[in-house]
Design a protein around this nucleic acid. Structure first.
Length: 268
DNA sequence: TACATATGATCAT
DNA sequence: TGATCCTATGTAA
């Protein structure tokens, strides 16, 4: 679940449910009890996302910093949901209840700490939009890493994860091993444009959908049931949606990556 | 019941 | 590069 679109959507949903009326906070699991007690009963003033980081600001000036990591979830639950001991944090008010489980980070910090966190992040496409292109291009130009590794580097751009990196490279026709500094102007611009577009779509739909209208008709009725929203991610051995080749899987920056050997030209 | 896996990141070697 | 942390889910045994 958690790439940048998820976190921005979360920030917006939490804002809707909690900003404006006092929030009860506790830690059924116990591991966050002391900190939760500090802002328990306060007003949430603001809820925002930077890349994959979520920040909820409280009256006292304290800030709840959450990073979901690989397996974390922060979800709205029914008021009868039992307080299981995997729930790190539970937020409640009159109209809503949310449970946080398995976060990589859940900490109470102050503004200065927040600034340190975001100073280590590259441009966030969902905050800066198309205006972030310049920064992104400079980041690419100064790196020799394979683009497939760079896209996961949150200090180059903030919010992309393993699904989007495979899909972005497919849509731009770029081989994952291409060194960043060999990506030309047009490709860099296309990468940034698609990133902004796809993250916005993901936030709106609350899930990752990269498939384009013109490719929908090429999806055989056989596979119509599932897995129809992506081009490359987890599609090893299946037909490319745009040519007769098969999608191949490889490893890059310690994670699996998928690409079409025909549509995503080999780098030399 | 056990194990593999997951849209992440850090720390040790 | 590999081990590690956190939790839930699906599949194998």
């Amino acid at each position: 679940m958690p790439e940048g679109h998820t976190i921005h959507r979360l920030a917006a949903d939490l804002r809707k449910d909690f900003v404006g009326q006092p929030v009860t906070a506790n830690s059924p699991q116990g591991r966050f009890s002391e900190s939760a007690a500090i802002f328990d009963g306060e007003l949430m003033l603001k809820s925002e996302a930077w890349g994959k980081h979520l920040f909820c600001h409280w009256e006292s000036g304290n800030i709840l910093h959450i990073h979901l990591g690989l397996i974390g979830k922060f979800r709205k639950v029914d008021e009868e949901t039992p307080p299981r001991d995997t729930i790190r944090l539970r937020l409640v008010n009159k109209s809503a209840m949310w449970d946080l489980t398995g976060p990589q980070t859940c900490a109470l910090i102050v503004q200065e700490d927040l600034e340190t966190v975001i100073s280590n992040l590259g441009p966030d496409p969902l905050r800066i939009g198309l205006r972030g292109l310049g920064k992104f291009k400079r980041g690419l130009a100064s790196s020799k890493k394979p683009i497939g590794a760079a896209l996961l580097d949150q200090s180059l751009l903030a919010g992309i994860g393993n699904v989007y990196r495979a899909e972005l490279l497919f849509l731009c026709g770029i081989h994952p091993e291409t060194p960043c500094n060999r990506i030309n102007e047009d490709d860099a611009e296309a990468l940034w444009d698609w990133t902004v577009k796809l993250l916005r779509r993901g936030k709106r739909l609350n899930r990752i959908v990269t498939i384009q209208e013109e490719d929908k008709e090429n999806i055989s009725s056989k596979s119509k049931k599932r897995n129809n929203s992506l081009y490359a991610y987890k599609r090893a051995g299946l037909d490319c949606r745009r040519c007769p080749s098969e999608i191949v899987i490889s490893k890059l920056a310690g994670r699996s990556i998928w690409h079409c050997p025909n549509c995503q030209g080999k780098n030399d």
